[in-house]
Design a protein around this nucleic acid. Sequence first.
DNA 1: TATGAATGAGTGTTCATTCAT
DNA 2: TATGAATGAACACTCATTCAT
Lengths: 200, 200, 200, 200
Amino acid sequence: MSNNQSSLRDKILEASRNVLFTKGYDALSMRKIGKEIGVSATSIYLYFKSKDHLVHTIIEESVEELSEAIEKGAGLVTGTIAKFEAIIRSYVDFALEQPEKYQVIYMIRSDAMGRYPKDKFRKARRGYTLLESVIRQGIEEKAMELDDPMIAAYSIWAQLHGIISVVYNQRLDSRIDQDKFIEESIEHIVQGFLIRTTTT
Amino acid sequence: MSNNQSSLRDKILEASRNVLFTKGYDALSMRKIGKEIGVSATSIYLYFKSKDHLVHTIIEESVEELSEAIEKGAGLVTGTIAKFEAIIRSYVDFALEQPEKYQVIYMIRSDAMGRYPKDKFRKARRGYTLLESVIRQGIEEKAMELDDPMIAAYSIWAQLHGIISVVYNQRLDSRIDQDKFIEESIEHIVQGFLIRTTTT
Amino acid sequence: MSNNQSSLRDKILEASRNVLFTKGYDALSMRKIGKEIGVSATSIYLYFKSKDHLVHTIIEESVEELSEAIEKGAGLVTGTIAKFEAIIRSYVDFALEQPEKYQVIYMIRSDAMGRYPKDKFRKARRGYTLLESVIRQGIEEKAMELDDPMIAAYSIWAQLHGIISVVYNQRLDSRIDQDKFIEESIEHIVQGFLIRTTTT
Amino acid sequence: MSNNQSSLRDKILEASRNVLFTKGYDALSMRKIGKEIGVSATSIYLYFKSKDHLVHTIIEESVEELSEAIEKGAGLVTGTIAKFEAIIRSYVDFALEQPEKYQVIYMIRSDAMGRYPKDKFRKARRGYTLLESVIRQGIEEKAMELDDPMIAAYSIWAQLHGIISVVYNQRLDSRIDQDKFIEESIEHIVQGFLIRTTTT
DNA sequence: TATGAATGAGTGTTCATTCAT
DNA sequence: TATGAATGAACACTCATTCAT
């Protein structure tokens, strides 16, 4: 059925994401994808006209889902600080709940793949833009003290990414509890941007 | 002479680091390394018994240098906060001044290379241990308020790594000035860990 | 309708001839033919049971058309020498006016394609037979002096083919005018077979 | 020995020429060449950096040998007409004695292979230039009557090529004796260019 | 009549590695 | 210490063809 048709395309995407996540970009080969889902490598070309096309599709979809997750998370709360924290939380949650999709976004060296169309990366910016505007709001409300909201947005995102990638790459000391590490890190990152009012 | 012998080994390491940095792990081939330094690919096997061994060595040495840089930086100042900031600064400086060596430490997926012996990663811990002890001191001196110094140390390191890798992977918006981004990010990260005394 | 049916078959033949002419035998692929005429590759198999069959058909039809063109040309004039020249002229004209069809006849190595059935090449002989009989007549009329009319017929044809294929394969010096080359070559070839009466 | 080293390169060239001659350009694959001489396909890359390089080398060498053969043949005789005939004879002899080398020169579509460097085709012109100058001499000596010596040279060459390629492609009627066909054809071609003095 | 799905064989090429010298 | 020769495995991709619909 038409159900089955689209199913193979999805299986390919899923298997690819899986290989990408567990073995890395360089280990991603048409043969391996095919083998993983019990299909000839050739068949993949029925759905994606090249390896690049396949990889681009995967990135694009992941980027889109991340953007959506962030927007959705931000939409659930009101209040500047609450939105600020919700965005951060949504970002981290997406990374934790959809590791294959999250990893794919960052794992790939821009020059390793046939140049990923620049404009597709623009899409990824929706999250930052939202975060930036919330920060701008926070400054107006005197809840944050910052030089440059855009830099701040990128900085937060970079710090979060650092936290997550350390976890995924298993570089943590084995005595450290992952969840605790993440929670405390988020807290510190957030603290780094808020004006703390002393509770005298 | 034995001078020349070790010299070739060094040339191999240097060329490899260079390729690793500019082209990525997958582009690292014995042939290319050989060509770059005017030596047959086979000759590399006289110094490294496999590609994995070569890469492991590179990582190991880079890790060692990073540790040394941090220790040296910390040794130049006195005072807890000063040491705290010196460690962070040394880490970032190493990353900025020796990009090939820094990148090599993180760029490589733990499984992309024939499993990098776990115990070699231990060495990387010297930096954290130092940072951790400084943080512990900071807590005692009431300059920091923290749950777990080890987690804090790893968290700082992860955040810094996030900042640096974003810069290296050129994911910043083109309107952002790199230096400013780094400086402000460091400031925020540090602020996230210090107790701020209100200027009443 | 049956009108449409034969139409698709013709489209396939035309597209194939076109690819064959412009890109060569190796570039002829079922997929490409299909794409060129907006039809699936599979559909071609409804009309031709294999790529070989398709190619054989193309050759066969071209050979038939060439034979017809020669017979028609010879039929338009009377007189032995006139017929002789008309045959040669018709051959060359066909080659120049229907390059795809002409080329196809010779371009394909007898073994590159699944052995082209020998008996199909017989058809190609109608032209030679005609030329041969005209030559025989010419000898009787003392206009030609020849050992073996069959050999002469094949020789003329081979020489003409040489002239044409050199032009088609663009091996001429760029300073040479193609038309002049062809005209003068024909003249020389004809001269090579006629008895020249001295103009005392 | 060093004898063996160069020997493999030669074997590759020979095997390639052989495949080219018997199966055609499209059938030439690195794997097939390797199999033919009992060597892995990979090994060919030790001597030729690409398939194109290999094919170019083959063409180049064949072209050079043909030029040499013609020059040598022309050098053995004196007298314009004798030289004229010697050139033609040398050309045909080369084609008959070294069929693989001869075929290779003409078999390959200029666009099928990675564009064969134009200047290498210049080399092929040495033969024509020589023929052209002999024809020019013949005109001066009133032994030939021609419009354009360059066109004449190319025309002769094209006619000869037609004769030879017909033989090689086995398009002759089976009742025709090949040697006789060639001899008589040459004679006619030559006659087409000479001024015949009537034996009154 | 026409198609989309699927595949095994084949293409040129690169790679890490071994071995004899 | 250093190398050139050699190779099997892998890569992305194309092809003619079959099959079920």
